[in-house]
Amino acid sequence: MLNLVKHDAVTEIQLARPPVNALNLDLLRALQAALAQAVQEGARGIVLSGAQGMFSAGVDVPELMTKDRAGVREFWREFFLACAALAHAPVPVVAAITGHSPAGGAVLSLFCDYRVMAQGPYRIGLNEVQVGLVAPDCIQMALRRIVGAYRAERLLIAGALIDAEQALATGFVDDLTGVDQVVTRALHWLNETLALPSHAMLATRQIARTDLTSTYADVDALPIDTFVDAFFHDQTQATLKQLVARLKKKD
Rank of each mutant, 00 (worst) to 15 (best):
M1I: 09
M1S: 12
M1F: 07
L4E: 04
V5K: 10
V5W: 03
H7A: 08
D8E: 15
A9I: 05
V10A: 09
T11W: 09
I13H: 09
I13N: 11
A22P: 03
D26F: 01
L28P: 04
A30M: 00
A30K: 08
A36R: 12
A36N: 02
A38R: 02
A38T: 05
V39F: 01
I46W: 05
I46Y: 07
V47R: 06
G50E: 03
Q52M: 15
Q52T: 15
G58M: 05
V59F: 12
L64W: 13
D68A: 08
D68R: 01
D68F: 07
C83D: 03
A85E: 13
A85M: 08
A85P: 10
A87R: 10
P90H: 07
V91Q: 08
P92L: 10
V94Y: 15
H100T: 02
S101F: 01
A103W: 11
G104E: 08
G105L: 06
V107S: 01
L108G: 06
L108F: 01
S109I: 11
S109V: 09
F111G: 03
C112L: 09
Y114P: 02
V116F: 06
V116G: 00
V116E: 06
M117F: 14
M117T: 12
M117Y: 10
A118V: 06
Q119D: 12
P121M: 05
Y122N: 11
G125F: 07
N127Q: 11
E128N: 14
V131L: 01
G132R: 00
A135F: 11
P136G: 00
R144Y: 06
A149G: 04
E153A: 11
L156N: 11
A158H: 08
G159K: 04
A164F: 03
A167E: 05
A169R: 07
T170E: 14
G171K: 02
G171W: 03
V173I: 02
D175C: 02
L176T: 06
D180L: 13
Q181S: 12
V182Y: 09
T184Q: 13
A186S: 15
H188R: 08
H188E: 13
L190A: 04
A195H: 11
L196P: 03
A200C: 00
L202T: 12
L202W: 05
T204V: 14
I207D: 12
I207N: 09
S214F: 10
Y216K: 04
D225K: 04
T226L: 12
T226P: 01
V228F: 01
F232E: 02
Q235L: 13
A238G: 07
L243C: 07
R246H: 13
L247R: 15
K250A: 15
